Amino acid sequence: MKRILLLALPIALLAACNAPDKGEAATATPATTETTAPAAIDAGLLAANHWQLDDASDGSGARIDALFVRADKPVTLDFGDGRLSVANTCNRMGGSYGLSGDTLTVAPMASTMMACADDALMALDQAAGSRLEGTLKVQQLDATTLVLATAGGDVLRFRGEPTAETRYGGEGETVFLDVDAQTKPCSHGVMKDAQCLQVREVHYDGNGLEQGERGAYENFYGSIEGYDHEPGVRNVLRVKRYTVKNPPADGSSLAYVLDMVVSSEMAK
């Protein structure tokens, strides 16, 4: 029995206090807080992070609970090459975007068409998409925070997590790995009585046709960031491979980050 996973589409604060003029009654004026928008949006800074939704409120200040269906997997934005990708909704969504001054404009987004059993998770697509499409005001953007205001008055606050490209200082090399269904015992350096993934590379041409024959599975000493192996399931993964600058003495000089699960099947 085979189980095939769908391919996903490649989707500031200033406090002011008003003091009374001389001669006026000394009446205390509460401090007000407002965000300071960037004069121009730094596209490179947008692309340097995965932006995870940290808080969201409507025009009255109430939390938008519909956007927080997956507590352990917040809605995440990724910007790059003129496209916005949205992850951790029911379906992956994505569309083109443009920048002008402190304004971010997102074109209507396309999405995969996978059905989710959880009704709240299904509704998350609409809740996120309807707020992210159109014109958004960038109220704050720095290395750790992105604050967007929608035309309807909602405010979305995101926390920045550096991308692998940012952490490793380069684009990385795209490779495909065939990961066998079962791990095997292995020992390497400080890894005693460990279980290693069984991995072999797969090669494709520019048209996506597999080239050559797959070799034998070998122990994979390390981990693939973002990949959780399920025993009994064999996967073909598209990963990014990065060179680690100044690796620790007992560590690898290569780092692997999951880009996509290309296919998945139960072992016979």
Rank of each mutant, 00 (worst) to 15 (best):
residue 204 Y to N: 10
residue 66 A to V: 02
residue 247 P to L: 02
residue 10 P to E: 12
residue 92 R to E: 02
residue 152 G to R: 09
residue 94 G to Q: 13
residue 163 T to A: 04
residue 265 E to N: 03
residue 99 L to S: 13
residue 2 K to H: 08
residue 182 Q to E: 14
residue 161 E to V: 12
residue 161 E to L: 04
residue 53 L to C: 08
residue 167 R to G: 01
residue 169 G to Q: 06
residue 158 F to R: 14
residue 134 G to Q: 07
residue 55 D to K: 10
residue 23 G to Y: 01
residue 194 A to K: 00
residue 185 P to L: 10
residue 196 C to A: 10
residue 166 T to K: 12
residue 12 A to F: 01
residue 206 G to S: 12
residue 118 D to S: 05
residue 124 L to N: 00
residue 12 A to E: 14
residue 207 N to Y: 13
residue 236 V to S: 01
residue 36 T to I: 11
residue 239 V to F: 08
residue 74 P to V: 12
residue 151 A to K: 11
residue 64 I to R: 09
residue 229 H to A: 15
residue 176 F to Q: 02
residue 242 Y to P: 07
residue 151 A to W: 04
residue 208 G to H: 05
residue 132 L to W: 02
residue 248 P to R: 05
residue 179 V to G: 09
residue 152 G to Y: 02
residue 240 K to N: 11
residue 249 A to L: 04
residue 75 V to G: 01
residue 123 A to M: 00
residue 53 L to S: 06
residue 80 G to I: 06
residue 237 L to Y: 02
residue 158 F to I: 11
residue 198 Q to Y: 07
residue 148 L to Y: 12
residue 230 E to F: 06
residue 184 K to S: 14
residue 139 Q to L: 15
residue 141 L to H: 14
residue 229 H to L: 07
residue 94 G to H: 10
residue 191 M to Q: 07
residue 156 L to W: 11
residue 39 A to E: 10
residue 129 G to Q: 07
residue 199 V to S: 14
residue 217 Y to C: 09
residue 172 G to P: 12
residue 66 A to N: 01
residue 209 L to H: 09
residue 24 E to M: 09
residue 13 L to Y: 01
residue 140 Q to R: 11
residue 114 M to F: 00
residue 222 G to E: 13
residue 220 F to P: 13
residue 138 V to K: 14
residue 97 Y to F: 15
residue 1 M to E: 14
residue 67 L to V: 08
residue 147 V to H: 09
residue 179 V to Y: 08
residue 238 R to G: 05
residue 92 R to D: 03
residue 151 A to C: 03
residue 234 R to Y: 03
residue 1 M to P: 01
residue 11 I to F: 07
residue 231 P to F: 11
residue 11 I to Q: 06
